[in-house]
Design a protein around this nucleic acid. Sequence first.
RNA 1: GCUGGCGUAGCUCAACUGGUAGAGCAUCGGAUUUGUAAUCCGAAGGUUAAGGGUUCGAGUCCCCUCGCCAGCUCCA
Length: 648
Amino acid sequence: MSNQITVSLPDGKTLSMEDGSTVLAVAERIGPGLAKATLAGRVDGKLVDLRTPLRTDCGIEIVTARDPEGGNVIRHSAEHVMADAVKRLFPDAQIDAGRADHSEKFQYDFLVDRPFTPEDLERIEKEMQSIIAEKAPFERRVVDREEARALFRGLDEELKLSRLDDIPDGEEITVFQHGDFVDLCRGPHVQRSDQIGAATLLEVSGTYFRGDERGPKLQRIYGTAFSSKKELKAYLARIEEARKRDHRRVGVALGLFQLDPAISPGSPFYLPKGVALYNGLVEFIRELYPKYGFEEILTPQLFRSELFKRSGHHDKFYDDMYWFAGADEDEELGMKAMNCPGHCHLFEIGKRSYRELPIRWAEFSRLHRNERSGTLTGLTRVRSFAQDDAHIYCEPDQVPGEVDAFFRMVREVYDKLGLEGVEMAVSTRSAEFLGEPEDWDVAEKVLIEAVERAGFVCRIKEGEAAFYAPKVEADFRDVLGRAWTLGTVQIDMAMPGRFGLRYVGRDGELHQPAMLHRAVLGSLERFIAIYIEHTGGDFPFWLAPVQVIVLPISEKQSEYARAVQGRLRDQRLRVGIDERSETLNWKIREAERQKIPLSLVVGEQEASNGTVSPRLRRSKDKIPVMAMDALTAMLVAASTERKMGPLE
RNA sequence: GCUGGCGUAGCUCAACUGGUAGAGCAUCGGAUUUGUAAUCCGAAGGUUAAGGGUUCGAGUCCCCUCGCCAGCUCCA
């Protein structure tokens, strides 16, 4: 029994420990300070509870609050503390299960006879504070199924008994206890409750047991916890900043769009400034298309359902589309929800030769999808949208080159937009897929290799692909650390076959082309929402709805100010003017609030010598007065070369 | 769709346990003619989301419709 195992530490040192020692014991051997700070361990890269006995030689890292995983351990423990607090205050409540999710929140579901009120949350939070102050140690126990069953039966925790039954035979069953509260749990957990430095409850919402609408209705409480009050404060500040940047608020404040869900749910009404932004993005992509070999096409908005039967959408996507009865008897029309069926049909209309491949067809048409009402959110989830969509038909051996070109375009576009830190995620086939498994293996491999060639970080999302294609998603993390999917490229395994697409090859025989779907910005609506929140409305100069505003100091300079505006407008710049009888200070304040990149102050001096006094957004730095000729040339260059700032 | 929380002026928000619907910004009018982030005065703006009910009296309580927000396979 007293065999020794060897554990190696991150710094290369090794320790000889008794077989069955815990992570905590290792930390204690290293030093008392580290032992005190220990929250969990990483054994051969895998997160484990600090009480788990070590049975074999292994590499160990000690997880403390400094480790990002440490926060998750703290939140996972705070979740138990919250459930404990609820049980103390509401002894009849049944516990279901909790979770520390990826967004720095934790949650726990309860079966109670009435919904929790905000006052209840305050009481629960207070109770949590006293549990934390009790410095209750967390204990881990391995139990067998019968013990666990007896335990939760004794506590009248029926939901928990049901959860227990979900655990497959042969799997180790562990429970964690602190004070009198015991829960079925894998861990890992903190040593004592006071390692939860700061915790607060955020909101309550309803949910269902196992997400099943027919099952019991539960109450879910959300909270968050950190190792220190300072971190909690920073988190709350981040939430507040996100709230301020909410595109629904900023979009309306900047006069970009209006939403009227009562009149058209899930569809934006774009105002002129919003259209400037929308068109600016479309024109940007459109301008790059010749370089990347794309041609734009336009296909109908309504198709007979025959088309969607061929594409498979009538079968797999029916409820997500809008359908109409046509004028002819039995005619069913489907509103365009995606461009690909129309593109495939267009491909098959002509006789295609290998000489014209790759065919790269792009389309910016508006699409309509019947999204469930509860899922609609601002511009991020809408029923009416457009994509910078394109489909590529090529010979199979041309696929890797096309995927490489996609990544080049993604990089160019995101760079100009100032989007950094994009990661790629390859989704592999799910249980339900069309086509041959061997073809999928090849396609998945092509995508992974292309991501690596392009030098992006590559993650794998097992089983997350759409039924017809493995895909790569460009995941972008915004300034607040939230991840969003932007562009995507997919290799279609189904549609060329379903449409019977053929081209004449070099050998004179008919062959089936490979087909790619790709979008760089993805949905323009979603992109605009994300971009508003990322930039806070501070758009790059080339994209700003109003690029320049002219600010005459008094009405005496009106005429000159209009001349300045006219001259810049002649160069296709978007230029406003503020001729109101307000102070200069007020006009500048307004220009700042409207996030206009450049203000041009014109007073008596400027008017008399043909100059302007430039003022950059968010900058107090003095800029010397500039002559109109020089300024005009500079602004035109900044706009056409798509620079971030006007005077770069 | 379902669960919970909500819905007051164009926007942001007030209105004690049911007792005369208010403020700031925006808008309009007037004064002011301003040199780098808030000039002054005044006016107008509401069927309190729609409908129904309880009450002497409803923004407030109840019912219903519409809409918004958060969440809704992913595990103890």
